[in-house]
């Protein structure tokens, strides 16, 4: 199934996602956005077949991607699952896919041609540091998965990120782009939006036009599970 290419990454959300994931300035995010494309896939749509040339590095913005292989017995086995904020594909050099990749749920990927990304990394230290951080984070995730170690739940990670963004008075200014914050803590926009709505409903966080205000740091900390 052919993916739907949305546009050339002009949206504020996508720039914010890049900034959040690569921890870079808006200028560097803009440079990266210029070589990125947003691609949407329906549930179960094939993103790549095993053996296909792999010439792109993908960042999962929404949904999830599963890597699958057929064993010698013909049984399909799931190798990995990449959720929001994770990367897969080719880097630093083009290669071939060693497994098939398919979308799980409605999925949106930010795709960067490997060769162009390598060139950008050579010229933009912020992007280079961002790629290194993303790869290190990915390695950490792989180790977590191997060890089946317990960590925070998705809402817990989101609340912790809110606390980390706040200044000593509990102000988060400007108000974060929730879709971007969600991706940076490996969860979905829906989960993050519901988590924020829940603390706003209880008065733990106030939502203003230009900022978020944490009213009770202790109550928010208690929700980090």
């Amino acid at each position: 199934m052919m993916p739907e290419t949305d546009d050339s990454m002009a949206g504020r959300d996508d720039i914010a996602i890049i900034q959040g994931c690569f921890a870079c300035s808006s200028k560097s995010a803009q440079r990266l956005a210029e070589i990125m494309a947003s691609r949407s896939f329906t549930h179960r749509a094939v993103i790549a077949h095993i053996g296909d040339p792999s010439t792109t590095l993908y960042l999962v913005a929404e949904g999830a991607v599963v890597a699958e292989l057929f064993g010698y017995d013909g049984q399909q086995a799931q190798l990995a699952r990449h959720g929001p904020g994770e990367i897969f594909g080719a880097y630093p050099a083009e290669t071939t896919y060693r497994s098939s990749f398919a979308a799980c749920g409605a999925t949106r990927l930010l795709a960067t041609p490997t060769q162009q990304l390598t060139e950008l990394v050579a010229n933009d230290p912020e992007i280079a540091a961002g790629v290194a951080a993303l790869l290190a984070k990915q390695l950490d995730l792989v180790l977590d998965r191997m060890a089946a170690r317990i960590g925070l739940s998705a809402t817990g990670r989101f609340y912790r990120a809110l606390l980390q963004l706040a200044d000593s008075d509990g102000r988060i200014e400007p108000a974060p782009v929730i879709a971007a914050l969600a991706v940076s803590v490996h969860t979905t926009r829906e989960t993050a939006s519901r988590a924020l709505a829940s603390v706003v409903r209880r008065g733990i966080v106030e939502r203003h036009d230009d900022r978020l205000q944490i009213v009770s740091r202790r109550m928010l900390e208690e929700l980090i599970v």
Partner: peptide, 15 residues
């Protein structure tokens, strides 16, 4: 009572 999440190769498990 939810106590966290385990990352696994086939996706997270809320525990």
């Amino acid at each position: 009572e939810t106590i966290g999440e385990i990352a696994t190769t086939v996706g997270p498990i809320e525990i």
